[in-house]
């Protein structure tokens, strides 16, 4: 369990990063977490003038379960029955990646996987494949897990030239921090 309750955590994080994006507050918790994780990296790594060739490869364990439950609650009372369109929109895990794409106009390849645990092998293979086959210049990878106030976001950018070698060992080490 994280010590800080998510709403407080995410509000502080968004202030620290200096985010100014009104649509942020409409997102569900998983999307907010993924979005901010991505923002922390992209704000210094994005070209504002030209189109950015950054693919997105994200994964988690609980899919969109936290929001699924919220949505289920909105249709559970047969007397007081009001499914919420805004909540329903977020009952898919890949919407968080969609939000990142919308903000930064990334019309690139994007994928979302569900694993029972973070898999550095899989992530590094997929990212390497995209870079080596020339499909994309950079890959933003992320493990973004959110369920009932247990949250973890591990987001990293991979490109051909950089300071830290992109291999399973390094990824696992950084994840464990």
């Amino acid at each position: 369990m994280n010590d800080v309750l998510f709403p407080e955590f995410i509000k502080n994080a968004s202030k620290t990063i200096g985010l100014e994006y009104p649509k942020f507050f409409k997102m569900d918790n998983l999307s907010k977490l993924a979005f901010l994780g991505a923002e922390a990296i992209l704000k210094d790594n994005i070209d504002l003038e030209n189109e950015n060739d950054i693919a997105l490869v994200f994964a988690n364990k609980s899919s969109s379960l936290d929001t699924d439950v919220k949505y289920q609650d909105s249709i559970s009372d047969t007397e007081n029955y009001f499914p919420s369109p805004a909540v329903f929109v977020y009952t898919l895990p890949n919407i968080c990646v969609g939000e990142i794409s919308i903000k930064h106009q990334l019309k690139t390849e994007n994928a979302f996987f569900v694993f029972d645990d973070f898999k550095p092998d899989f992530m590094s293979n997929y990212a390497s494949y995209l870079l080596e086959s020339g499909k994309t210049e950079k890959v933003l990878c992320g493990w973004v897990e959110y369920y009932k106030n247990e949250y973890k976001a591990f987001v990293y950018l991979v490109e051909k030239l950089g300071t830290i070698a992109h291999d399973k060992q390094n990824i696992q080490t950084l994840y464990n921090k």
Binding site: K26, A86, V89
Partner: peptide, 17 residues
């Protein structure tokens, strides 16, 4: 206020509820 299409749908739910 810059609302979008999903907001419109939420307002429709609001009218009903």
């Amino acid at each position: 206020l810059g609302l979008d299409s999903i907001d419109a749908l939420e307002l429709i739910v609001l009218l009903d509820k």
